[in-house]
């Protein structure tokens, strides 16, 4: 197979296992390119990509931008804070205006779940979802699973992967669950009950509220950030009483790892709240895959854009 089954990358939900395998294969090839003295290939020369970020992002945007530069694409960047969105323009108008300038591909981050799906029905261009609210973040799941394969071996069938933390507000969690399930892994989510959607187990994942037991169970853990910005307004009732109590229950510390008689692969999609969900010594330690994830992010995004551009 040399083609993806999808026209846009809106979510892992629309993808097949073959799609993922093709992206992994292509990612490996681009990763090799990134380690050459000359890191640039002409694959997307003549292609113009618009990076539309309607929500703040540092690493995802940089990662996409770097991937585009490595592929020799032309780039326009847009962020909501400096745009006509603040003047009341609709999403479709904003994007159509940009497309009128002959843009071939859109990478979009948006605070509203489903915004890229909505847009994909309105505009004639390839859309890559770089995170839509609390829904999906497909390229993060691709780079996470790619990094896991590097660490645990190419076949994730039967491997036990735990996703720990603020599952309720995480787009990374849903995309990772779907991708890991496509690849045959067993997935468990772990966190305070208030931060796990009530119907999570209906997605075919295990649910736990005990981090120590989960660490014993798992081959790898993906530590999610507490999304402090999504915990509701000042008048709403918080999902947990304090950061302190959260860290006691669900913070990954050296002390916790020392109790295990095995090594764990440790992932974090970033940005890290050091000392909250993960301690510095672990984040910077030998089993941390965090910086591999960042490197693989560029290669996998190159792969996604390259493959979609060929459709």
């Amino acid at each position: 197979m040399s083609e993806l089954s999808i026209k846009h990358l809106l979510g892992i939900r629309d993808m097949t296992r073959d799609d993922l395998e093709l992206i992994f294969k292509t990612t490996s090839e681009f990763k090799e390119v990134l380690n050459r003295p000359i890191k640039k290939v002409p694959s997307l020369r003549d292609l113009t990509v618009a990076n539309l970020f309607f929500e703040n992002s540092t690493r995802t945007r940089l990662s996409f931008e770097l991937a585009q530069k490595r592929l020799s694409a032309d780039i326009v960047n847009f962020s909501a804070s400096s745009s006509s969105v603040k003047k009341g323009e609709t999403l479709v108008d904003t994007v159509n205006n940009i497309l009128a300038m002959k843009v071939d591909m859109v990478v979009m981050r948006h605070p509203h779940p489903g915004a890229p799906h909505f847009l994909s029905k309105k505009v004639k261009t390839t859309i890559i979802n770089a995170g839509d609210g609390t829904h999906e973040h497909p390229t993060q799941a691709i780079l996470d699973t790619f990094s896991l394969r590097e660490k645990l071996g190419d076949d994730l069938e039967g491997k036990r992967i735990a996703i720990v933390g603020d599952i309720r507000h995480s787009r990374v969690a849903i995309s990772n669950i779907l991708a890991l399930q496509l690849l045959g892994a067993t997935v468990r989510v772990c966190g305070p009950a208030t931060l796990i959607p009530k119907h999570m187990s209906d997605l075919g994942v295990e649910v736990s509220h005990d981090l120590d037991e989960t660490l014993i169970w798992a081959d790898a853990v993906n530590m999610l950030r507490i999304q402090l910005e999504r915990q509701g307004g000042p008048n709403s009732i918080a999902f947990f009483p304090s950061i302190r109590e959260y860290t006691i229950g669900f913070g990954l510390t050296q002390q916790r790892l020392d109790k295990l008689d095995k090594q764990l692969a440790i992932l974090h999609p970033g940005p890290i709240n050091r000392g909250v969900e993960i301690s510095s010594e672990i984040a910077d330690g030998e089993h941390s895959v965090i910086l591999d994830q960042v490197e693989n992010g560029v290669a996998s995004r190159m792969a996604v854009m390259y493959l979609l551009a060929r459709q």
């Binding site: 939900r13 609210g133 609390t134 829904h135 849903i174 959607p197 009530k198 119907h199 999570m200 209906d202």
Partner: peptide
């Protein structure tokens, strides 16, 4: 399960 999948 649908709201969970859609992140809504």
């Amino acid at each position: 399960v649908t709201s969970t999948k859609l992140g809504l």
